[in-house]
Amino acid sequence: MGCVSRADMQKDPEEVAGMFDATAKRYDLLNSLLSGGNDKLWRIHMQRAVRPQPGERILDVAAGTGASAAPMAKAGALVTALDISQGMLEVGRERHPDIEFVHGSAEELPFDDDLFDAVTISFGLRNVQHPRAALSEFYRVLKPQGRLVICEFSQPPVNVVRKGYELYLGTMLPGMAKLASSNPEAYRYLVESIRSWPDQQALSQWIRGAGFTRVAHRNLTMGVVALHRGRKPSEQTGALRLAKHADAGEQDA
């Protein structure tokens, strides 16, 4: 397909992939510029939330060029970095030859059930056409007691912060992107996707709806970003829950 300058809010996978193909080489640099360097702090918080252990299998979805996957691999985890953009994967393989990069969709993960100790996704769930389908896929490929960690743009809960952030999104960010990026249209998509993304409570409900337990979130940078966590229940816990539902159904009958 030809180069796509920006996707729309329908988030067609081919258009999203084409948009990121066009920004791959300067993507990390521009992220650092447009976030005022906060992207590095967000990755540190992400790493602490995941707590990667040597030998663990971790899937980093929407991994881009591997900026989030690299620290987990350095900690000794066996990281698989998946992305829908071939351009991102090419840059990632050049920068991190020790990490396995795989082309694929978050909505149809090319992996067996119960395979990974942790699934992570940083600033990528917002770009998925059907995010709740992706959450179900994350649940499927996790081992029982496996960990889910999502870092995503969110909605600042404090009104004055929310207004200031909206001003930044509407004026400063597009202006900076126009000066620094060869594809500023992609950053118009960024603004639109952030504005239309649900708040922390709604995303937490989606995560619970996919079957995860111990769901919690932590606001970063006053709620501009939120770090969401969940666990896939153990097989025993899942069996007990099904038994309780069955008993409740018999009592209601």
Rank of each mutant, 00 (worst) to 15 (best):
S5C: 01
K40L: 15
R93K: 15
G2N: 14
A75Y: 02
R48A: 13
V16D: 01
R43H: 10
G175H: 06
T213V: 14
V160G: 01
R140A: 09
A73F: 02
G175A: 07
G76P: 10
A67I: 13
L115N: 07
A73E: 13
S204G: 09
D117E: 08
F101N: 00
K232H: 08
Q205G: 14
D83G: 10
G170C: 04
S182Q: 11
A106Q: 01
A226H: 02
G92K: 05
M88L: 08
D113P: 13
A67R: 11
L240D: 12
R140S: 10
V16E: 02
I44C: 13
P157A: 04
Y27W: 08
L78Q: 15
Q236M: 12
L203M: 14
I99Q: 06
G18N: 03
C151M: 15
E90L: 11
E166W: 00
N219L: 11
V215P: 03
A63D: 04
P110E: 08
V191R: 09
V4H: 03
T120V: 15
P71T: 07
R93C: 07
R43L: 08
A22P: 03
G37T: 11
G223A: 03
V91R: 05
G223R: 02
A70Y: 13
P156S: 06
Q236W: 08
G238Q: 10
A70E: 13
I207G: 01
L30G: 08
A77L: 11
I194H: 01
D39N: 14
R48Q: 15
Q86C: 14
G2I: 11
A202T: 15
K163F: 02
F153T: 10
L33V: 15
L220C: 05
L29V: 14
K25Q: 13
L34R: 02
P54Q: 12
R132V: 09
V50G: 05
W197P: 02
R229D: 05
G36F: 05
E100G: 03
S193E: 01
S85R: 09
N159R: 14
